[in-house]
Amino acid sequence: MNQIAFLGAIESGLVFGLVAFGVFLSFRILQFPDLTVDGSFPLGAAVSATLIVNGNDPWLATLVAAIAGAGAGLITAWLNVRLKILHLLASILTMIALYSINLRIMGRPNVALLGEETLLTPFESGSLPYYITTPLVFSVIVLIILVLLVKFLYSEIGLAMRATGANPRMARAHGINTGRMILLGMAISNALVAIAGALFAQSQGSADVTMGVGVIVIGLASVIGGEAVMSTRTMLLAIIACLVGAILYRLAIATALNLDMLGLKSQDLNLVTAVLVTAAIVFPGMKRSLSGVFTRGDS
C-alpha cells in the first residue's frame, strides 16, 4: 500500500470514527438498535452539498447538516417513545423515508462539489499536498468532537442518559425522564453521523443518495473492533476505542484491496466488510476462550 492509499484510509477512518461515536451512543449507551444512520449519513451529505452549491459557507452547511441529522434521530426516537413503535422498526421507517427526503433535498441522485469551496479549500493552498492536509484537518475536528462527547457523557445529563440505557426502570425511579433522554441521545447520535456524511461528501467531492448503504455495518464494526483491541474500562477509553476501531477497519479494507496476492477488487468491498465484521464479533469470544484454556493449563 502506497502513502496516498494509507493516508486515504486514515482520512476515511477519521470520518467513520464520527459514525462510530454515533453508533456507540445509540447501541452502547442507550441500548437502542438504530438503523437511521444509513439515512442520516447521506442526509448530512445532501444538506451540506446542496447548501455549498448554492453559495453558502461550508462550515454553516456542515452545521445545518448536523441539525438535519439531529432531526432524523428525533423522529426515530419520537416514533419509539411517543407512538410505542419498536425501536428497530422505528429506525427502519425513518431510514426508508430519508431516502426520498434526500432526493428531494438534492433534486437529483447526486450533487457534485468539484470546483466548489468546501471547508478543506483554505488548507489546500499550503505547501502540504491535499492527501496530508485533509487527514490533519479531520483529525482536529474529530478530536474536538471526541473531547466534547466525553465531557457530555460525564455531565449530569450524560450520566442520566447512561442510566437510562443501563436500567430504565431504576432511572425512572430516580426521577429521570427516560423518554427525553432517548430523544436527546438519538438526536446527538444522528447529528454526529450527519457531520460525518457532510465531511465525507466534501472530501470526496460529491454527495450521492446511495452513499449511506452499509454505514451502520461500518459503525458497528468500528465499535466492536475497537472494543476487541482496546480496554474500555472508562468512558474515555471506550470512545477512543471507537475511533481506533474505525481507523483500523479502514486500514484493513485498504490493505485487503491493495494486496495483489488476494486478487480482490473494488467490487469485493462488501465481501471484505462482511468478513471483517464477522472477525470483529468472533475475536473477543475467541480471546476469552483461549485465555481460559491457558489459565486452566497453568493451574
Rank of each mutant, 00 (worst) to 15 (best):
I10K: 01
L143Y: 13
I145E: 07
T273A: 13
N167G: 06
Y249M: 11
L74E: 08
Q3Y: 12
L248T: 06
V193A: 14
G165F: 03
T50K: 07
A191R: 01
T234K: 09
T164K: 05
N190H: 11
F123T: 02
K287R: 15
S125F: 13
A61V: 12
E227H: 11
L18Y: 02
R288N: 14
V142F: 02
I218A: 07
V37D: 06
M181K: 05
R82K: 10
G69A: 09
A221E: 02
L103I: 14
V19A: 00
I224N: 02
G263H: 06
A246D: 09
D57N: 14
A201Y: 00
L89E: 12
T36P: 10
T210A: 13
G175Y: 13
A254F: 04
L159T: 10
M261C: 14
S48G: 12
I216N: 02
D260F: 02
L259V: 08
L98W: 00
A9M: 04
L120N: 05
G225L: 01
G17H: 04
E117P: 02
T50C: 06
G245F: 02
A65W: 00
I85S: 02
A61D: 09
G17Q: 04
L103H: 09
D260E: 09
M181F: 06
L153D: 07
A221Q: 05
F21K: 02
T94F: 04
G292A: 15
A160G: 15
L113A: 05
V244P: 00
I253M: 11
A187S: 14
A279C: 09
V193M: 14
Q267G: 05
I253C: 04
A20M: 07
V293G: 09
I247Y: 05
L251M: 12
A173C: 12
L271N: 08
G225F: 01
T94D: 05
